[in-house]
């Protein structure tokens, strides 16, 4: 008896979202099969990989990273250099200086930084806020205004601040937004419904279902993404069909494994390698669960994950 394949092809599909300026935009979403199951049916758009930079500069304690950004000192130079990383589909700027628990620079200044990076970037742009609902509510509309015409993707709008961010970014300035909820399928759905009630149509927002690094409660994230994809495809749940973006870098580079020094843990080896492997492992697992885009910090991780995607899809 021969093997009878039983492909799972769904009548519904993930919504497509494009961002980036006209002529240079990238598109993700669109799949009508489970994540990476290109053997069941062709997948419209492969998952995307973004390279993350911070407005606070580059961690030059990491030798490989320092070498990659050698000579790039201003934000514009760093942004331009990041865009040359092999495999990077988009640039993601984290506006760290605006964090109220940190430097807390005014939103106008942060928006100007976003503009500076954007003007220097050859790739479509994602802007990551500061993960503080009040500051993001003020900051992201300013960024949206500063980046008119760039069709940038702004992360993120949460339940506490989605109204202002959604209306300003999408309706007033034609940008895209990420709807962020805390690793829970129902919260994600609820936020999407609320956003759609503001008159924001599919194609203008993506989902950000939370973060976790491998080993740190990652099962909650992966199971949530898997359940969201299953509901979107098999239940045709319209409110769970936007593509999923997962910023991996932040968590991957802040867990103990990527933070402690080689002096303290000599058997663990160089810190940079640990951070890269943590990024790679987490990103690959996110893609397996169903993320349609991941954001990584190290050019070496970006290259590996881009290659993995190219091999699979």
């Amino acid at each position: 008896m021969t093997f009878k394949p039983d492909p799972q092809i769904f009548a519904s599909s993930i919504k497509e979202v494009s961002f980036g300026p006209e002529g240079a935009a990238v598109t993700f979403g669109g799949a009508g099969v489970l994540p990476l199951y290109s053997f069941d049916a062709p997948i419209a758009h492969r998952p995307l990989v973004g390279i993350e930079i911070s407005d606070k500069g580059v961690d030059r304690d990491l030798p490989e990273l320092a070498a990659f950004y050698d000579g790039a000192n201003t934000l514009a130079e760093i942004a331009a250099r990041a865009c040359t990383a092999p495999g990077a589909d988009f640039l993601s700027l984290k506006l760290e200086s605006a964090d109220p628990n940190g430097d807390n620079i005014p939103s106008d200044e942060a928006a100007a930084l976003a503009k500076e990076a954007s003007d220097a970037s050859a790739l479509p742009l994602v802007i990551q806020g500061v993960d503080n609902v009040d500051k993001d509510a003020e900051l992201l509309p300013k960024v949206a205004e500063a980046l008119q015409g760039k069709n940038a993707l702004l992360l993120s709008a949460k339940e506490e601040n989605y109204k202002g961010i959604a209306v300003a970014a999408v309706t007033a300035y034609g940008q895209k937004i990420g709807a962020e909820s805390a690793v829970d399928i129902n919260l994600a759905k609820q936020l999407n419904v609320l956003i759609s009630q503001m008159g924001i149509q599919h194609g203008n927002y993506v989902m950000h279902l939370g973060n976790a690094a491998a080993g740190y409660g990652f099962e909650y994230l992966s199971s949530t993404i898997e359940r969201v994809k299953l509901a979107a495809l098999s239940q045709n749940d319209d409110a769970l069909q936007p593509p999923v973006i997962t910023p991996v870098a932040g968590d991957a580079w802040s867990v103990k494994e990527s933070v402690v020094s080689e002096e303290d843990f000599p058997e663990w080896g160089p810190r940079e390698r640990r951070g890269i492997e943590m990024e790679i492992s987490t990103a690959a697992a996110c893609l397996a669960a169903g993320s349609d885009a991941v954001i990584l910090r190290h050019p070496s991780s970006v290259e590996t994950i881009a290659k993995l995607i190219a091999e699979l899809v």
Binding site: P141, K163, G164, A168, T171, Y173
Partner: peptide
């Protein structure tokens, strides 16, 4: 137009 957008957003969101 910038003022329209600036004032329009909080009006739409009811802020």
């Amino acid at each position: 137009d910038a003022e329209v957008r600036e004032l329009g957003v909080p009006l739409v969101t009811n802020d």
